[in-house]
């Protein structure tokens, strides 16, 4: 039986203006299941309700209706809170503290003892590449360094669920690679990572599952491999255009576009790809190019969001 790190049931959040004249539905009937030990991508265009969902999961924002559980327990359970690490999207630390002092403060707040902190603080600073700056004040840090420190704060107490809200937005390519490696390292240790990021190529590289949100609703959710392989697309180029070939293609695939000697066709699954090639040849087509194309996460994202409009 799969155990879930996060389970939401019909979660809904409606923001009302002060005099209740205007209402904004930020999250609508959200059903989410995040398997424990997975890296879960939480995607959606701006204003889709991702950050509101995260804030509800952390107990910062109260749901209007619905319910959710973290590791099977409500967020009011202090034991569950101890198992969560969080990097907010927009945040500022108490910047007059040094990196070391800040981590000690957050560690103590999580209930860590001095002995563990003395070992753990240099360890995580090393992990995020800030060991040399341990005694520097946070206000001297660049935005990227502050984000690294934010990640250190989130993993300091070795939590089982790490929620990262845009963890690489201020990082350079090297920093992004470090975060990617860190996420994979956390996964290898059985941790659950809940990742909200607009950098879909990165999400694709590290996530096992994704959910795509639009206007507060989950439009698509599932195993990334399965989601991307549902309808493989093949780009074909013939020596000469042929209506007979296109007719044959239509029998086994959906013709997406056709322009002279070139066309793209979508097949139901990967096993149909050789069948398509055979049909084209049997119909007299002379293949110049036959390139199966795996849909990227970006393609899927754009398609899902467009479909939901």
């Amino acid at each position: 039986m799969t155990s879930y790190a996060i389970e939401t049931h019909q979660l809904r959040k409606v923001y009302r203006s002060l005099w209740r004249r205007q209402t904004v539905v930020a999250v609508e009937s959200l059903d989410l299941k995040v398997p424990a030990g997975s890296v879960f991508g939480f995607l959606g265009p701006n204003g889709a309700g991702k950050t509101t969902t995260i804030m509800m999961l952390l107990g910062n924002v109260y749901p209007t209706s619905g319910s959710f559980r973290i590791f099977g327990r409500p967020i009011t359970d202090m034991g569950v809170r101890r198992r969560i690490g969080f990097l907010p999207e927009k945040f500022q630390f108490h910047d007059l503290l040094t990196a070391e002092e800040l981590l000690w403060f957050h560690g103590r707040l999580t209930g860590m003892d001095r002995h563990t902190l003395a070992r753990r603080v240099p360890e995580v600073l090393e992990q995020v590449g800030l060991r040399e700056r341990a005694r520097s004040r946070v206000r001297e840090f660049s935005k990227g360094m502050q984000q690294r420190l934010g990640i250190a704060q989130a993993i300091l107490h070795d939590p089982d669920l790490i929620i990262l809200d845009e963890p690489t937005s201020a990082l350079d390519p090297l920093g992004r690679r470090d975060v990617r490696d860190l996420i994979l390292h956390l996964k290898s240790r059985g941790k659950t990572v809940f990742l909200n990021s607009h950098l879909l190529s990165e999400v694709e590289m590290v996530c096992d599952e994704v959910a795509i949100l639009r206007a507060g609703r989950v439009q698509r959710q599932g195993d990334l491999e399965t989601l991307l392989q549902v309808h493989p697309v093949v780009d074909v180029e013939l020596r000469t255009p042929s209506e007979q070939v296109l007719q044959a293609v239509r029998e086994v695939a959906t013709l997406l576009s056709a322009n002279g000697t070139r066309f793209s066709a979508e097949v139901q699954d990967e096993s149909d790809i050789p069948v398509l090639a055979r049909r084209i040849v049997e119909a007299g087509g002379e293949l110049m190019r036959f390139a199966p194309r795996r849909e990227s996460l970006e393609d899927l994202f754009v398609r899902v969001v467009e479909e939901a409009k």
Binding site: L58, R81, P88, L109, Q153
Partner: peptide, 13 residues
């Protein structure tokens, strides 16, 4: 306003 409390409020307190 500055987002300082986000990293504190999720802690076990």
């Amino acid at each position: 306003e500055r987002g300082m409390l986000y990293a504190i409020l999720y802690k076990p307190l």
